[in-house]
């Protein structure tokens, strides 16, 4: 049984204007799946629909064997699905520690402190910056906090919207390495990425979306050399890392 499965999902901000037009895909446990595609393809809209932030028009979504179609966003985190938005993804007015404990509040009380500590172990920089206001962190630190914030509830699946956006190349590599570490720890990772090269280096599988539908799928590394992908998306040329 897949961890996450969508079937014929149609979604968009306005009912008459669907952005996701008919997407059926699945994600297994312990894998990294990256969604690629040109601007406007509906990648972000798809994951936002799965996360309960964008309304569905039709179709279904299952998390394990339970339907999460139409479940509101605030309930999904308790079901094991954590989402990291692209912008405004930390509480800027709170400290690092407060961000983590606020996110951990959905856990049973005995587990909270342990989980927060686990995040500080996984992200040592954050442990050191515990009492710093999140708004004052550097771009890279903030992105790490955004991921830690989502991870602190020990989800089964982590969904990220362009985690490398706005980051310098060396930080992008760090984020991707962290995602690999997270996958190795047993969490499935789904991410939307513009930086195809960096994402494909860590992804187990890639799904390419064009105009609201799945255009192509394949194993991550092989897609780098795949001429179809190069034509559809990578512009037929090798990009600089």
């Amino acid at each position: 049984m897949s961890l996450l499965r969508t079937q014929a999902l149609v979604a968009g901000y306005e009912p008459g204007l669907p952005i996701v037009r008919d997407v059926s895909l699945s994600v297994e446990a312990r894998e990294i799946v990256v969604l690629l595609g040109p601007n406007g393809a509906g990648k972000s809209t798809l994951i936002k629909a799965v996360a309960g932030l964008v309304p569905y028009v039709s179709g279904e979504v299952w998390l394990r064997d339970e339907s999460i179609t139409g479940v509101p966003a605030h309930r999904l985190v308790r079901r094991g699905l954590a989402f990291v938005p692209q912008n405004e993804n930390v509480f800027a007015g709170l400290t690092v520690g407060e961000n983590l404990s606020l996110a951990a509040a959905v856990l049973p009380r005995p587990r909270r402190a342990a989980q927060v500590r686990a995040m500080e172990d996984l992200f040592p920089d954050l442990g050191r910056a515990r009492s710093q206001r999140a708004g004052r962190l550097s771009g890279g630190q903030r992105q790490m906090l955004a991921i830690a914030r989502a991870l602190v509830v020990a989800p089964d699946m982590l969904v990220l919207d362009e985690p490398s956006a706005g980051l310098a190349p060396v930080l992008v590599d760090l984020v991707m390495a962290k995602l690999r570490q997270i996958r190795d720890g047993g969490v499935a990772v789904v991410l939307v990425e513009q930086n195809a090269r960096a994402a494909l280096a860590v992804a187990d599988r890639a799904v390419i979306m064009v105009e609201g539908r799945v255009a192509h799928e394949g194993a991550g590394a092989s897609l780098l050399d795949d001429p179809v992908v190069a034509q559809l998306y990578l512009g037929g040329r090798r990009q600089q890392a």
Binding site: A51, P72, A73, H74, E88, A92, L102, A105, R149
Partner: peptide, 24 residues
């Protein structure tokens, strides 16, 4: 109280508040 924390979080960032389980 939890409600108070939820109110402050929702004021600061309603979207993120939903993502941490708050019924905004």
């Amino acid at each position: 109280t939890a409600l108070g924390r939820a109110m402050r979080a929702a004021s600061e960032n309603p979207l993120l508040a939903r993502l941490v389980g708050i019924d905004v």
